[in-house]
């Protein structure tokens, strides 16, 4: 039987959270520095070839729909502004982190990002986030903890996979085998990367709305919905879809049986973006 951990012991003894990538660290620092310029931000991104390439591919994807080719990071920064570019760099960093993962997992991760962006039209979500791009980042990050588990605990992951194959949702399987779930690990990574309190809170509470701090519950609820929507649409990270959607989470989204078809239609119409963005990490 595998050993059970609490999150702090797990991070002390088994899983090493990756440091904040230099490009993201510098962009974060520059964004908080009133004396920095957009040109400084562009330089910081350009210094990391992998991140700058992925950032440009994201900017030029149909997903952003700019209608003009952006060839340099400088141009992207001027066109989109610092805040959007920071979200782009976080997205590019996640794409970098999931590179080489199973196709199914990447599609699910990207699908959740796209679903969150499509859900941004819902008043409850748009009043809780600054932009649709921020929603995309939330979706991309929602299972990042699983990447770390796969890297540091492959044997335990086999046991977890066996439970999932029997119909147990991933987060419950993880709690049963190691005592901690990927949401807690993802939230700790977001903390280490100095992402917003909102992201950290929503990631940690995404599977248990009642355990989530009240101010982050709406976002956690939408994350749970985006995850469920992806699994119901065939974009599951496992062969057997096991997502759970709590009644409490649905109530927080404000979506009703009457408004649901339009919500789903918006997601259906963004499906092609999943395939396009998938190619960034495949």
């Amino acid at each position: 039987m595998s050993q059970h951990y609490d999150i702090d012991t797990l991070l002390d003894e088994v899983v090493t959270l990756p440091s904040m990538p230099t490009s993201l660290e510098q962009v974060t620092r520059l964004m908080n520095d009133p004396n920095s310029s957009l040109s400084d931000v562009a330089k910081a991104i350009s210094a990391d070839p992998s991140i700058s390439l992925k950032t440009l591919r994201l900017v030029n994807s149909a997903y952003y729909g700019l209608g003009q080719e952006v060839k340099t990071v400088d141009h992207a920064v001027v066109l989109l502004g610092g805040k959007v570019v920071k979200n782009l760099v976080v997205s590019a960093t996640v794409f970098d982190a999931i590179e080489g993962s199973a196709e199914r997992f990447i599609l699910h991760t990207v699908g959740c990002g796209v679903a969150m962006r499509s859900l941004y039209k819902q008043p409850a979500l748009s009043s809780a986030l600054e932009s649709a791009d921020e929603g995309f980042v939330f979706g991309l990050l929602h299972e990042i903890g699983r990447v770390l588990l796969a890297e540091y605990m492959p044997k335990e992951c086999d046991e977890i996979e066996a439970l999932i194959a029997g119909g147990t949702p991933a987060y419950l399987a993880e709690r049963e085998i190691i005592g901690v779930d990927h949401a807690e690990i993802g939230a700790k990574l977001a903390e280490r990367w100095r992402l917003s309190e909102t992201i950290i809170g929503a990631l940690s509470g995404q599977y248990n709305i009642d355990r989530c701090p009240e101010q982050h519950r709406v976002l956690a609820a939408f994350l749970q919905l985006a995850n469920f929507l992806c699994e119901a649409s065939g974009y599951s990270s496992e062969e057997l879809a096991t997502a759970v959607l709590e009644d409490e989470a649905l109530a927080l989204t404000g979506i009703t049986p009457d408004t649901l078809p339009a919500v789903l239609q918006a997601f259906y119409e963004s499906r092609r973006e999943i395939d396009e963005l998938f190619s960034l990490s495949a």
């Binding site: 469920f228 929507l229 119901a232 649409s233 009644d247 649905l250 979506i255 049986p257 649901l260 078809p261």
Partner: peptide
């Protein structure tokens, strides 16, 4: 609502 979502998604 969870069942409704799955039924509509299956149809799609």
């Amino acid at each position: 609502m969870a069942d409704l979502i799955q039924i509509y998604c299956m149809q799609e």
